[in-house]
Nucleic acid binder design. Sequence first.
DNA 1: CGTCAGGTTGACGCGGGTCAAAATGAGTGG
DNA 2: CCACTCATTTTGACCCGCGTCAACCTGACG
Lengths: 239, 239
Amino acid sequence: VIERHIARLVARHTLSPAERETVRALIRETRTVDARTVVAAEGQLLSHSTLLLDGLMCRYKDLSDGQRQITEMHVPGDFADLHGFTLKRLDHHVMALTPCVIGIVPHDRVRALTDAHPRLTRIYWFSTNLDAAIHREWELSLGRRSADQRLAALLCELHVRLSLVGLADESGYDLALTQIDLSECLGLTSVHVNRVVRRLREAELATVRRGRVTLHDLPGLRALAEFTDDYLYLRPEDL
Amino acid sequence: VIERHIARLVARHTLSPAERETVRALIRETRTVDARTVVAAEGQLLSHSTLLLDGLMCRYKDLSDGQRQITEMHVPGDFADLHGFTLKRLDHHVMALTPCVIGIVPHDRVRALTDAHPRLTRIYWFSTNLDAAIHREWELSLGRRSADQRLAALLCELHVRLSLVGLADESGYDLALTQIDLSECLGLTSVHVNRVVRRLREAELATVRRGRVTLHDLPGLRALAEFTDDYLYLRPEDL
DNA sequence: CGTCAGGTTGACGCGGGTCAAAATGAGTGG
DNA sequence: CCACTCATTTTGACCCGCGTCAACCTGACG
């Protein structure tokens, strides 16, 4: 399943066989974690990063009254908290939303990589910058898009990202998120998400039910959200 | 004025004299740009990054109807688009909001740095991860904070960041932003920003007028926003 | 002293929040 | 195989924060 991580990297940059080996050697062990497990807590000193191999995870921050904002979704192949290597302590929580398989990557191995492999370092630096680009797109959604557009944009983003690792096709993808989870991504209430889900279904754009997203009209969905995949950087460039 | 950049780095990590020299040598030239100049356009292939030495800049994205979302503010000492080194093309615009002094840092010098100076590479990697942390905090604001809390949070963040480079004290700071600019940071309309500015003044928390932010009650402002500076990473850690 | 960007204010409307209740449905144990 | 449970989804009625629209004010600058 670590091939999903390689696939994700290769979608953006070439990797030599030697580099692939170096990447594979980053993982010390794999583990499974239950749904709703916090794998990295805000403020905690970290000694390793978490590579998501299977399942869904998210980053979130919350306010004192319990309101929660998910700042990014993670799909298989993603590093959930590679930025923890330089930040040491996270400004947010990382939580499994479904049962997950994760790879543990000790920070001393990442550090050795930065000392010995400048090109791979640049590739992983890129990877955290891609997370930032996703954050920016979400800021645009949260600040300026309507509720319908926000959900459409999220569905389009997940479709692209899951396709990269072979977990989506043109018909749709499996997505084990509750409407509460979606509301925490979108800056809405779960009640309103329910209305928006219905509207997208009635507009024959997409059907979202617990467990599965079915895409009826992807161009229409993209047009509604004004979605372009530029911010996901799918055209490989040299590093 | 490049000392502001050094000050910003040293607030988070130690720098040896040799490292300081290496950092200084990154700048090929300095320039001035007028207010409202776009110094890096979305999608454009970049060959250098822009170090902000004086003035205010921002990153923004927009929708087809002209609605704009500023995703981050830049203060003197910040790299405005260091992430452009790995991304090659930006997913957003970078614009001067006031007349600015900038340093031009060619990407081949950054690349040389990543080949020869692993520790400085980690420090600059950290720097772009700090941008991402700011993006996440803004996602929290845009998704979950009320209009009043959002403005309070922004004023608190700028106070901390400007203090680091000696451009703010406990009384307040100069800030040449229009209410339109603020509205584009906060995901609000300029009309509503005007009302919020009045409310913060009437609550004797802060006075915001064109050119100057005066802080009357910083603890009150921070409490309103539930602001903590954790996400700005002011406690130095080793890299 | 004219011009024009930006700031200010008021009236009104709407998107999305709140509250409450009922329906659904995936386990779980008997 | 059924009864029970509890989280989640769904729906309706009502409300409010913020947007919209429009008019007027202010002040910097030529």
